[in-house]
Structures are given as structure tokens and as C-alpha cells.
Design a protein around this nucleic acid. Sequence first.
DNA 1: CTCTATTCCGTAAACGTTTACGACGATAAC
DNA 2: GTTATCGTCGTAAACGTTTACGGAATAGAG
Lengths: 343, 343
Amino acid sequence: MGIKELARHLNISIGTVSRALNGHPEVNAETRKRVLEAAAELGYAPDQAGRSLRQGTLNVVALLLSTDLTSKTDTMFFMELSRGIQDQFAEHGLDLVIHLNKPDLDMLDRVKRIVERRQADALILAETRDNDPRLDYLAGRNFPFATMGRSWSGGTHPWMDLDFDFAMRAAIDRLAGFGHRRVALVTGDPGYRLDSMLQDAFRRELAEHGMPLDEALMIKTDTHEEGGYKAMTDFLAMAEPPTAVIFPHYRAVVGAYSYLSETGRQPGRDVAILSCSADTAIAQFMAPPLTCFRLDLYGLGRRLAQALLASMPRFAESYGNALIQEIWPWELVGRDSDGFHVG
Amino acid sequence: MGIKELARHLNISIGTVSRALNGHPEVNAETRKRVLEAAAELGYAPDQAGRSLRQGTLNVVALLLSTDLTSKTDTMFFMELSRGIQDQFAEHGLDLVIHLNKPDLDMLDRVKRIVERRQADALILAETRDNDPRLDYLAGRNFPFATMGRSWSGGTHPWMDLDFDFAMRAAIDRLAGFGHRRVALVTGDPGYRLDSMLQDAFRRELAEHGMPLDEALMIKTDTHEEGGYKAMTDFLAMAEPPTAVIFPHYRAVVGAYSYLSETGRQPGRDVAILSCSADTAIAQFMAPPLTCFRLDLYGLGRRLAQALLASMPRFAESYGNALIQEIWPWELVGRDSDGFHVG
DNA sequence: CTCTATTCCGTAAACGTTTACGACGATAAC
DNA sequence: GTTATCGTCGTAAACGTTTACGGAATAGAG
């Protein structure tokens, strides 16, 4: 099953076998055919370790995800994204593998392990934090990597991100059009760049629309169902509750819907609910269907992979050697969760 | 950064360095300390390719998932499962990596690639199909693997599965107790062992409870939101609709809820909805909260990993060299989606 | 002092590839 | 007939580890 056996079986040298399999030009056409046939018949495939050892490359890109995702974010988002990444890499013979890890501190260790043991040729990080030490480490080692979501400093590494400024403007435009003036925002930990940007954009757009800013209407909490449930509970206990709530994180909406339903209220009638999340399958099947943002997650994944490839010396020329950092547009999908006029 | 540099830096041989790092007994305590310190300081970690080449082991286990998961199943299920698997493997210094692949035919190629290129020491398959060629291939190559969900033949490989017989009995017991006699079942493609078992159990339990079996009430469709939506549409268009519907697949429930809401109906009042899925975070936040089954997904993942480890020569002795195949119990969590009496 | 056992460490082979280098024969050029 | 060119292939080194083997030094036993 090794290349040696294959060579012996064909009565040629291992060098020729290797050249034949790797498509080198200096091998006779008929010899190549014989080699390929024999390889297919005997089920030979080059050992990854041997090849990697020799040419220092593994044909594997790692995507590092935190197990937090299970509890805090929309797993669908990353699944769709991964599908795009995977397909793009496949065109270059690269495999995508997902590494799950405990969140926070261990993450740096895992990154170090991947780099130092050479478990992948490049790395994709999903969620970056303020002063994320992983970015410095990777940049210092000159290891190719990309991130989903820009980092705080912008950085000189490739990334893809979403246009949250646009989303927030579109959301508040829409709510203002319906006559809302007390709008609330429920985000997660502002230690994440995403939540920080959302809060900034929220403040700015409120000001632009001449709406009052009430800090009590900006709740930072967990981004899953329970966080949304509690946030909605708090809002409705206020002397003057908001008439509209923006939940950038989709899963929090589920909790909010739940509390509203329990108390006999209805989203889209008693309070407007709007999400800045991607329009994954469930949104249109909520009751009432959720207003959120349409986005080509699969395409985003592909483009993220392209950005990373463009930063890898081996593939850079195919992608114009450019540093690719893009902010992706999306489109507001108005549904019934916020479709009513106040006042 | 190689072991050679490290050895030169310490003025000892690479053999001793290797032994020191790998905890072999025949090395002086003080030498070992020096080596470990220097390795930490210089950020040395053994190259995976070199090590793998030498000792034929990689310390990596692969979990193969289909990109279908995105559209068809509850991604949360596999995330929680993966977390358990990951933690169990970590105790033995193994990493879990997830390979995403297109469904169906390509899957066998991917499995072959993983085995032939030695990209992992063992493999976990998530969804097996009738006459799944991947199982035969792996067994033929004597490659360690385990599956989530038993295969059709039972097989001689380790697996974990859920007690769907129990679930179906508990579900129909409960519905019978509420007075239901026209109960429907919405499953996916019976080419999957899971759906096939559910249908069998459903028929059996109906008979045991003296309920009539109406084949029109057994719909096979997609297991995502849209499938549930359409199934519910079909049911309610019947001359004599079912009074209760069992949706083993959680995501189909979302679609069913959606249709009910659109037509002014309410789950748990106009029709009973019950799911045999695991009780993931969303179930209790649906409106009304969904009756389903409580399950320790994390523990299940750990146990699945143990079962696999027990089948790997390297680790077998720690686990008693046994073939581990287990059917896990779960517990019905009665909520409001089916809590009403008929007639 | 001799012999043996023990502790520690260096040497070198091996794992399965890829590839630089050189060699061989055949063909073409003069 | 000599030389250069080309196409094809074999040889061997190299990648970074681990580990079997043997050797040197020390200690203990007689």
C-alpha cells in the first residue's frame, strides 16, 4: 500500500511513480496511465504524513470554533458559512476541518498547537475579541489566517464582515417610518467586536433620526433564548416600555417571543421585534415571521476562503496577491414581527 | 524550532530530547527539567507529520458530518454531541476534528481519503443509511470507527443510539391518556435507520393501544421547517384530520407551529403536537413550549467517544476491550404543546 | 580488584514521500 | 561521425520524529 509496493508492482522506480501521480510533465504518457490505473486498482493514496514531512504542506485548513457556539449563537450561521468555505477550498484540493475548543483562554493554546504541530496550512477564526492574543500570535508567526468579523484594529489580515452600520440604519429607518420613538437594543458582551459595533451604530442612528437615547433601553445580556426572555421581561416591567426592540442575535428573539406569548402579547402588534441577524430558515417560520436581513451565507463563506487563499503564498497568484477585507451588504426582509404603526 | 535545534541549544542529543518530552523513564530528572523548560521557552512542539510518520499515529479523530445537516436536522444536536466527544478525547491527548462533506456519494470518497491518507486515527459517522457502503469499507480496512445511531444490521462496530421504542411508547401512552385516537406521524426518508425505526415503533404502539392505523396519517417528508409546514397543511385539509401529530424531528415542529398560527389555530388547543427530539434549548421557548424528550447529549457524546476508544488497540485496555453498543434512555418532558383532552 | 547491574545517554535506522541530480538512449543538427 | 538536445527514468538525499541498540560511567556486590 506504500509507494514502494506500488513501484515494485509496476517494475519502475518510486520516483517515477511519484511524478506520475503528481502530474509532472517529464513522464511518459503510457507510464502515467499504467501508474494511475494501478494506484486506483490497489487503492493507493499518498500518506499525508510522508508528503507533509517532505514538502511542508498538509492541504488542510482549520476552522476554529468555540463550544460556546452551542449555547450562545446561531449554529446554522456557521454551518452555512462552513459549507461555502469547504466548497471553495475543495477547488484547490484543500480540506476544511473544524476544530472545536473550549472558549477563552484555552483557545490560544489550541491555536498554538495547530501552528506548532503544523496541523493545518492556514487557520480561520470565527469570533475575535478585544485585544485577541490569537491574532498577535498568528501574525507574529507569519501563519496564514483569516477571520470572520473584522478585528478591533482592522488588522492586516484578510477578513469578511457584515455591514452592521447599514443594518442598523435600515432597521431604525424602518421603525421610524412606523412612528416608533422608543427603540431598544439587546446585544451581547461588548467585548466582542460585533456587539460593540452594533451599540455604536445604534447610538449614531438614534441621533441621526432625532430619537432620544435612553441607556436603560440598551441591555447587554446573553445572546441565547434565556437572555432574550429576560430582556423582554425587563422592558415590559418598565414604567415606559419601548415600543420596538432590536435583537441582533436571532436566538434571543425566540426567548422574547416566548415571554410575549406567555403574557398574552403578540410580536408585531403589542411590540415591534426586529433582528439584525441573517435570515436563516427558521425566521420565516416564526409566528409571526421575523423581520431580519437576507444574506448569502454560502457566498460569504466562499469569499472568506478566497481571501485566505489570496494571503497564502502558494495560492496568492491566482487571487492577485491582494489583501482582501470586505464588508458584505445585506438586505432587510420586512415581515410581520414589526409591521405596525404606533401612536 | 526543530528537535535538532533544541538539542543543539541544550548540548544534548536529539534522542534524549525526544525521550524527555515523551516522558520516558530512562532520562535524568534534571535533564528532563532542562528540556521541558527550553521547549516551553523556545516554543517547540513536535511536528505532527514527523511523529505521525514514525509511529503511524496522529492523535486525531475525525467526525464526518454531511452538509445536509444545515438544512435537514437540528444542528444543535451535533454541536452538543461534539462537545462531549471532544472532552472525552482530550483526556487522552486526542483532538476531534469535524469534516464536512457533501452528502451521499461523495461521502464514501471522503471516508476513503481519510483512511488512505491517514488523516485520522479513527472515525465517527453521524448518519448511516441502509446498506451504507462506508461501514463495509471501514470494517474491511479494519479501521477503528463508531457511529451515532445503530446501523441496519446492528453491526460489530461500537455505536450509541437512542431508545426510540421507549419514546414512541411514552408518546402514544401520553396521547392516549388525553383521549386521542387519531394520531399522525411525520418522519423523514425511511432510508435512514432512524426514520425507519420510528415508523415501525409507531405502528406497533398504535396496535398495542388499540388505535386504528391510517396510512394517510404517516407522512414522509423533509425534516426541516418547510416539511413540517406542508405536513400540517395536508393534515388539516383532510376530511377527518388527526387530533395529535408526532414530529420526531424538531425543526419540522417549527413549520407546523407556523402553519397553525397562520390559520388562527394553536398547538396544544386545536391540535396536539409532540416531538421525539432531544430537548434542546429552543423547545421550552416555543409558544407554547414543546413536549419532547430530555437527554444528556453531552454525556452521550462522551460515551460515544469511550465506545470508540475501547475499540482502538492503543486504548482498549483502559476500557476493558469490550464492544460497546448502547441504547440511551431519555425522559418525556410534558409541556403545553399537547396538553389537552379531546372528546 | 573484578564482575555485574543500573542509570543515563548518543548513534543511527526507519517511517513514506518528493525532488534535485545525473544517466541513458534516441533523435536531430552540423 | 561528432555533438547537442530532448524525453524519460533511476538514485539518493531530505523532511522531523521515535526508538532499538549499544556504550560509558557509576555504583554495588563479592
